[in-house]
């Protein structure tokens, strides 16, 4: 069974690297039109878009710092206006910013983490719902984290808190828009080999984490692709909404 998304209009935030880039490529190969949102990684985003067009699909780039007020709405509108609507939104953009114990964390760090992981995601959802409703429905896939349930690793409490809110928003919004034929789910990755850990995890911590994963290894961005496609597909995921799909090698079994 191959999941197809022919002609569907997809926006992936944070689509230039890691999980986002892998998801963009897969949507392109499955026939979708894919908008690759990026902030600073213009060159990487261009390469990802080239991958999409090489797969014979239509794509576009959309730049924006989602932590700035007004930008998430502008990003969504720009893509939806270009294509006359949006069918799938993957809210992938996010980061830990930096590790810090709560007692050492500044108000600025808190604001930064919440703006990047939660506020813009809420704003993207708010902007896309009317456009999906106009088109008869759609699917939103939010990228949460294993941290949403386990409180996060060392110095990751604020990050975990923001992701916990993403999961809660996912459940509540799923109920709010189910009547509009919009499904809302979340992907909850565990330890995935991306720049996220290059930036935030040293070798010692990495080895410790590996020991806590039953499958004995980190996951790859590629392994987050099919779970995202399942949740996004109106065929394969038709009756799935409000769910956090944990992709963590067995590290957490809620």
């Amino acid at each position: 069974m191959e999941l197809r998304f022919d002609g569907q209009r997809v926006l992936v935030t944070g689509g230039s690297t890691g999980i986002g880039a892998a998801v963009v490529q897969a949507f392109g190969e499955a026939g979708a039109r894919v908008a690759v949102h990026y902030n600073r990684s213009a060159e990487a985003a261009k390469e990802v878009l080239d991958g999409v067009t090489a797969a014979g699909a239509d794509g576009l780039l959309v730049q924006g710092d989602l932590t700035q007020l007004g930008v998430p709405e502008r990003v969504v509108q720009e893509v939806a206006d270009q294509w006359g609507g949006l069918d799938i939104l993957v809210n992938n953009a996010g980061d830990m910013v930096s590790r810090s114990k709560i007692e050492d964390a500044s108000d600025e760090l808190y604001e930064q983490i919440m703006a990047l992981n939660l506020r813009q995601l809420f704003q993207c959802c708010r902007a896309v719902i009317p456009r999906m409703r106009e088109g008869g429905g759609g699917a939103i896939v939010n990228v949460s984290s294993i941290a949403a349930r386990n409180g996060g690793g060392d110095g990751a409490v604020l990050y975990a808190t923001s992701k916990g809110a993403v999961s809660t928003l996912t459940r509540g919004l799923a109920k709010e828009v189910a009547g509009d034929n919009i499904r809302v789910n979340a992907l909850a990755p565990g330890v995935i080999e991306t720049l996220f850990h290059t930036r935030h995890t040293d070798a010692g911590k990495w080895d410790t984490m590996m020991g806590t994963i039953p499958l004995g290894r980190a996951g790859t961005p590629e392994e987050c692709v099919a779970p995202t496609l399942l949740l996004a597909s109106k065929d394969a995921g038709s009756f799935i909404t409000g769910h956090m799909l944990e992709v963590n090698g067995g590290q957490l079994m809620p």
């Binding site: 459940r171 509540g172 799923a174 109920k175 189910a178 499904r183 565990g190 039953p214 499958l215 996951g219 790859t220 392994e223 987050c224 099919a226 779970p227 496609l229 399942l230 009756f239 799935i240 909404t241 409000g242 769910h243 799909l245 944990e246 992709v247 963590n248 090698g249 067995g250 079994m253 809620p254």
Partner: peptide, 20 residues
Amino acid sequence: DASAYVTGQAIPVDGGWLAG
């Protein structure tokens, strides 16, 4: 292999019931 990194999970296919 679509779920190669998924184990120990229960996936609801419930129209959103368990969302609350």
